[in-house]
Design a protein around this nucleic acid. Structure first.
Length: 559
DNA sequence: GCCGTTTTCGGCCCGACTGTTTTCAGTCG
């Protein structure tokens, strides 16, 4: 079987997981993780790089990993990885997802008890057996139980960041056949939900048998599941389920609409359609038109009040990717970014931006090589130097300053006031009480130099819930002090969430859609942030980085 | 396991918190 970059990266990452549980040299573990993350971000197919004999040129790929990549290229598998899996079964590495439980503890549990699945671990925790092991007490046992319950509640979902690129590749593949008249991604992916259960594709074709055969030849296919007339389901690489529904071209438009959902939205539509002949409609807009409604963008079809608003023709005009004029949250190799300042500027210009703000971590975040005053001022001078050589692009100075435990900021006001953009973010003390956490963030909001609050809740999808904060109180203060909230676009974060985004909008609080890129390739992740914003009903005027350079600078100065 | 205009060997990201202990290992960002 052939694996794509992301599957190969996944295999290296899982190798790192196992090595970590086995107690291997942490630097070796990190080497595998680094190689995996670099491969994940490649824009070129690894196979192509291999064909050119250039695998060794990839950063983080030395002699040993190159040999493993070559084995994957030629055999489609990796013996080293299979051998490691025999020592540490997949059910054991899954335990790494439990918050507070790390490789050492997992290794010790597994070697001492042989527990090799989340299910068995849960039973052991419930039966109070875990606390009998050395180094594990009642508290850890309780956290294990809670952690597994949290993981269960997530169900069998994957992030949009995993599913969407795969869905698009599938769609493009099927579109290439001349007997396929149209393909559309439908279901929750089309609506831009941050977590999705599977990939749903709708195909318009008069040759449903040929389409099913084509599906079976898709290079990302892993297994075929149910199959029937006009329908085929199964599993793709990365373990993502899919369903393909094939309809005749004349039924396509209405079928797309119904299959896009959500269920609640669809049910209301069907009610509206009763007694109405919509068979002549060739676009979704036509159908909504026949129902005397505005076209409802898929991101809004969540059965909130979109149908009512569409009927009254007062749906907002949602912000679009093309509205973004710049990115206000960027890291470079000055702190923990993987790309140089120059590479990030080049990437921003390729995206057609007019500006970007360099916002490194501040000194308290020493893991990330956070900047102290001196290095920050050196960077400001470097940025001024770059700006002198650019006439159609502005690099803004900035910082992602740490909000300390007591709500003070990690850098003094005299420094912050010299910067164009100040983002304040929480990176520590996640377990404060809701009130303490809220007060801490509010004191950052009140600082006159703080322009944006970064990733407000710190949530990581499928990994950890956000910390407890009083969102309403924060929005109220953000409105009062004219501080914007960030939509952190990383598909694992999408923080603030669509719900909070809509609350912010309704309160008149501005939002910044940022990439938080640590690598030049990650600047394009704003597509996910834009989906989040659209699901939060945001318009262009709600988003500060849709402003032109001059307008933005004026806005920041008036803050 | 990777990397090198300080090095082909010896570094590589470190400090704080948590829960377990009773002086510290493990986890996290």
């Amino acid at each position: 079987m052939s694996m794509d970059n992301r599957e190969i990266a996944r295999m290296l990452d899982e190798t790192a997981d196992i090595l970590e549980i086995l107690g291997e040299n942490p630097f070796k573990v990190r080497a595998y993780r680094k190689a995996a993350s670099n491969i994940n971000r490649l824009e070129t197919d690894l196979r192509e790089i291999w064909a050119q004999g250039r695998l060794g040129e990839l950063p983080g790929v030395g002699k040993a990993i190159r040999a493993k990549l070559e084995e994957i290229m030629t055999t489609g598998d990796l013996r080293y990885y299979r051998e490691l899996q025999k020592k540490v079964p997949p059910g054991v590495t899954e335990m790494l997802a439990i918050p507070g439980l790390g490789p050492k503890t997992i290794g010790s549990i597994y070697t001492q008890t042989g527990i090799d699945s989340l299910e068995k671990l849960y039973q052991a925790a419930r039966d109070k057996k875990l606390r009998e092991l050395p180094g594990i007490g009642a508290k850890t046992e309780y956290n294990v139980k809670k952690g597994i319950e949290m993981l269960r509640s997530l169900g069998e979902t994957v992030t949009l960041g995993t599913a969407l690129p795969l869905a698009e590749e599938f769609k493009d593949y099927l579109k290439g056949y001349d007997y396929v008249e149209a393909v559309e991604i439908v279901g929750s992916i089309r609506r831009g939900k941050p977590l999705v259960g599977d990939i749903d594709l709708l195909v318009a074709s008069n040759s449903e048998n040929l389409v099913r055969e084509a599906v079976k030849r898709f290079r990302r296919l892993r297994e075929i599941g149910k199959e029937s007339q006009g329908y085929i389901a199964g599993k793709l690489g990365l373990g993502v389920d899919f369903e393909v529904i094939i309809v005749s071209p004349s039924d396509f438009c209405l079928a797309v609409m119904l299959a896009t959902g959500s269920r609640g939205h669809r049910e209301k539509l069907v009610q509206e359609m009763e007694g109405l002949d919509v068979s002549g409609a060739s676009t979704e807009a036509d159908v909504y038109g026949l129902l005397s409604m505005q076209f409802i963008p898929p991101e809004l079809r969540e059965d909130r009040d979109e149908i009512e608003q569409a009927r009254q023709h007062c749906l907002p005009e949602l912000v679009k990717l093309g509205d973004l004029r710049g990115d206000l949250h960027i890291h470079t190799s000055w702190s923990d970014g993987a790309s140089s300042l120059e590479e990030m500027v080049a990437a921003a210009r390729r995206l057609g931006y007019s500006y970007m703000a360099v916002t490194e971590h501040s000194r308290s975040l020493s893991v990330s090589r956070g900047l102290d005053e001196e290095r920050l001022m050196n960077q400001v001078r470097a940025i001024q130097e770059i700006n002198r050589s650019l006439d159609d692009f502005t690099v803004l100075t900035g910082i992602e300053v740490d909000i300390l435990k007591d709500g003070r900021l990690d850098l003094p006001d005299e420094i912050l006031e010299q910067l164009d953009v100040v983002i304040a973010s929480v990176h520590s003390h996640f377990r404060l009480s809701r009130q303490e956490q809220t007060e801490r963030i509010i004191s950052a909001i009140k600082n006159e130099h703080v322009d944006i609050i970064g990733h407000l809740t710190g949530r990581l999808l499928l990994r950890r819930p956000g910390y407890e904060v009083d969102v309403e109180a924060i929005i109220e203060q953000a409105r009062k002090f004219r501080t914007a909230l960030e939509i952190n676009s990383h598909p694992d974060r999408l923080d603030i969430s669509e719900e909070v985004a809509r609350l912010a909008r309704d309160a008149g609080v501005k939002v910044a859609i940022n990439s938080d890129a640590h690598h030049h390739a990650d600047m394009s992740l704003v597509t996910y942030g834009v989906l989040d914003a659209r699901r939060g009903w945001l318009r262009k005027e709600d988003v500060i980085n849709t402003l032109e350079t001059g307008e933005l600078l004026a806005y920041l100065r008036n803050k």
